[in-house]
Simulated assay, not measured.
Amino acid sequence: MVFVLYSGIRRRTDRRVGQAAAVVAGEILIFAANGFHCPLTPLARRLGDPTGSVTDIYLPTWFAHNLPAIHVPLIIIAVVLHARNLKSAGAGFSGGPPRGAEGRHG
């Protein structure tokens, strides 16, 4: 998600961003299909966590409990940025290097 946002801000919409966005979209679909609950929650419960939470292991509690509310605006921003990029590119998604990159090497 960070890469998709960064690329949108830098006006780089290419094949790699499309692949990263497909991964993000897949995660969203899995999350939605699971009733907007993490699909790992039952596994965490079976392994001994009474709450079924795994995000609190590596994230602050407030952040872990608000992940959907934090990610939805970021996803919307990324979509808007890349839509802008595609619109300004004229012909749309080309899958090639970003505009203006023809002279860059290395």
Rank of each mutant, 00 (worst) to 15 (best):
V4R: 00
W62T: 14
A32R: 09
S94F: 00
I9S: 08
F63P: 03
I77W: 06
V23P: 01
V54L: 13
P97G: 02
P50Y: 06
H65L: 12
S88N: 13
L74Q: 12
P68F: 10
V80G: 04
V23F: 12
H71K: 07
P39E: 05
V23Y: 10
A25G: 08
A83M: 14
D14Y: 02
Y6N: 06
S94A: 13
R46Y: 05
G90H: 12
A33H: 02
S88F: 07
I77S: 06
G96L: 10
K87C: 07
A22Q: 11
H37T: 07
A21R: 02
H105T: 14
D14G: 11
V72S: 10
P60Q: 06
V2K: 10
C38Y: 03
G103H: 15
I70P: 02
D56Q: 08
F36Y: 15
A44Y: 07
I28T: 06
L40Y: 03
P50S: 15
T55R: 01
E102G: 08
F3K: 00
L40P: 00
H82P: 02
R45L: 14
V23Q: 10
G92N: 05
S7I: 04
V4G: 00
P68Y: 05
D14M: 07
F31M: 00
I9N: 05
I70E: 06
N66L: 07
P50Q: 12
V79A: 15
G103V: 11
S53W: 00
